[in-house]
Structures are given as structure tokens and as C-alpha cells.
């Protein structure tokens, strides 16, 4: 299912400061040693690339397809979520994810990952925490059918989405920094 939301990560604006990582861990109770989001600073030829690693909320969601109990599911907004009550800790979803963004929560023994802060923030009408705290406004989060989304995409024709394995289109757009 196509997500109702899009996230834009502007790698040109991102400085890899990890404010997103800490804010997310705090708000979403991510245990130490794990993360729902991280920006990797990858050395390229003579610059760094600032590469966001998090759930892509991809259209074909292999994690949902392999889940034997329906614990991995897509909510009505197209956000890929986990329902711990149905989870049997088989970790199939973890293996199926081509982006390797699921971790096993050591206490619940259920997989956890970015849910665009569906529970912790969206439900209260707030933006995902990573978007809200970013010191350089490198992230935006919009409704897929909104004017802002169209404007961002037309302003940044070089933006791209990753598509790994059989995951289909991602909900996260990236704008690579080009010098």
C-alpha cells in the first residue's frame, strides 16, 4: 500500500549531528544500543554523504508479507507498524527487510522500528520528532498528496528514492548533495 505520508531527507542540509537519533530514542523509548533512525556519515571521494537509515515505509513492505500472524501491518495511513500483541518473535520480518532497519526490543522481544512516530507524536498532531528537532531543517514530513509535497519534488528534481530488493517505492525521498 502507498503511504499517505512522505518524508524528505535533504542530504545537502544534513550535518550528521544525530539530534534525530537522540530525540527519537528518547521519545520512542528505544533501548540503549539500538536505534530507529541514524544518519551515517559516509566518506566519499572528497566529501561526506549524510545517509539516513530508517524504515522506508515501502510500498510492498516485505516485512508485512512474511509476518505469519499479522503483527507486522500497514495502518490506514500507509505507515508500516508493529502490533506487539500479535507478535510471536519469529523475526521473519527482520530478515525480510532489505534496509535492515528492524531490531529486536530486548524487553518485549518484538521487533521495533521507525513508525513515523505514529503513536508517540502523530496521534497528538505533532510532527515526527526527528523532523521537529533537526537543527538545519534537513527533514520534512508531509501528506503525500499535499501541495508542499509537490512543491518539494518539483524544486528538487534530483531527489530519489531507494528501492532495494522487492520492496517497491519508498516513502522517504533523499536529495543527494552534489558538488
Amino acid at each position: 500500500m502507498k503511504s499517505n505520508y512522505l518524508m524528505f531527507h535533504d542530504e545537502k542540509k544534513c550535518i550528521g549531528c544525530q539530534a534525530c537519533t537522540v530525540g527519537c530514542a528518547n521519545v520512542n523509548d528505544v533501548p540503549r544500543g539500538f536505534g530507529r533512525v541514524q544518519v551515517q556519515i559516509k566518506p566519499e571521494k572528497d566529501r561526506y554523504q549524510f545517509y539516513r537509515v530508517s524504515c522506508q515505509h515501502c510500498e510492498k513492505s516485505p516485512c508485512v508479507n512474511v509476518c505469519p500472524t499479522g503483527a507486522s501491518y500497514v495502518d490506514t495511513d500507509g505507515v508500516v507498524r508493529v502490533n506487539n500483541a500479535k507478535c510471536i518473535s519469529c523475526a521473519y520480518c527482520q530478515s525480510a527487510c532489505p534496509y535492515h532497519v528492524r531490531y529486536m526490543e530486548p524487553d518485549t522481544r518484538c521487533p521495533d522500528k521507525c513508525d513515523f512516530c505514529a503513536e508517540s507524536r502523530l496521534a497528538k498532531g505533532e510532527l515526527p520528532v526527528c523532523v521537529s528537532v533537526c537543527p538545519t531543517d534537513a527533514l520534512s514530513f508531509v501528506k503525500a498528496d499535499s501541495e508542499e509535497a509537490a512543491e518539494w519534488l518539483s524544486k528538487h528534481p534530483e531527489a530519489y528514492r531507494e528501492s532495494k530488493g522487492n520492496a517497491g517505492a519508498a516513502s522517504v525521498y533523499r536529495r543527494k548533495e552534489i558538488h
Binding site: C17, A19, T21, V22, G23, V133, P135, D137
Partner: peptide
């Protein structure tokens, strides 16, 4: 998070602040 009342910063904050 950052304090919205400070116009130069709004909700922005760094990893240390967070």
C-alpha cells in the same frame, strides 16, 4: 526540544541538548 518562543531556534535542538 528547542523552545518555540525563541524565534531564532524554534523546536530545533542538537543531540547533546536532546
Amino acid at each position: 526540544e528547542g523552545n518555540k518562543n525563541a524565534g531564532h531556534q524554534k523546536t530545533r535542538i542538537c543531540a547533546r541538548g536532546s
